[in-house]
Amino acid sequence: MRSDVPAAVLAAPVRPIGPRLVLQYVAVVVAALLFVTPLVYAFFSALKPNDQIFAVPPTLIGSEVRWGNFVEVFRHGPFLTYISNSLVIAVAGTLVVLVVSTTAGYAFGRLRWSGRDLVFGLFLLTLMVPQEVLVVPMFQLMQWFGWVNTPQSLVLPFAFTAFGTFLMRQFFRGIPFELEEAARVDGAGPMRTFLQIILPLSRSAVAVLTVFTFIGFWNSYLWPLIVVNDYAYLGTLPIGLATFSGQFGTRWDLQMAASIIAMIPTALIVILLQKHLVKGIATAGIAGR
């Protein structure tokens, strides 16, 4: 329609580098430096001899660089157990969330049945119930089930939130209906259409849900604190870290090394999958419009 207008006019004008842009850069860099200072300082503190961490004036590098602190952490607490527990629970929890959310999302987003919208409304209503209302009765429930201090008590109770179902349903609704119709005409049942058509088309949404769910389980703190009482057996990384800090409160070198180790997995996930995540959060935010 406007093909006669040169592209350069439609695009934003190319502005020269002015003092404003320089100031903007300075502000960004200063903000970023202030922001990373705690993390960088924690990393270098993890490499110091313990008695130099609170030296005045503070230094970045102590009298020696002790990479061994990162190994010594594993000798002071069952950190390998914590890490493997966290990993197993996060993977199992994520699998449950994915199965439950995609199947329910499919029923709400693609199938037609009476009462669907009412049931969906009730589902969304459960999103309003905050965790702190649930944890007290949930612990009572775990006692009745005999599930206190069991792996399933860390996986199942918070794997059925309606959030994943909502996310999947929204995404599934956007997939053209004809694709499914064609498969149905060819005699494919809903299970086959779900597995072979809808799920493959929803890879990006499934990826976002996977990552957020995994991070949620990996970082979960309040519920494991309540339901686990044998940390050497079932302690997760956040719990282990908090216990470690209680037991070795004066060994700041080891606390920092352990903290850095705990941060690495999720930080890496975010750095590697940044595009997916940024898009997922942007979608969530814009849904607020």
Partner: peptide, 18 residues
């Protein structure tokens, strides 16, 4: 953006200990 986002996803216990 990713840099400013990192502490959102790292374990809260680790952030607080720092």
């Amino acid at each position: 953006r990713v840099l400013f986002f990192i502490p959102v996803v790292t374990p809260m216990v680790a952030n607080v200990l720092v």
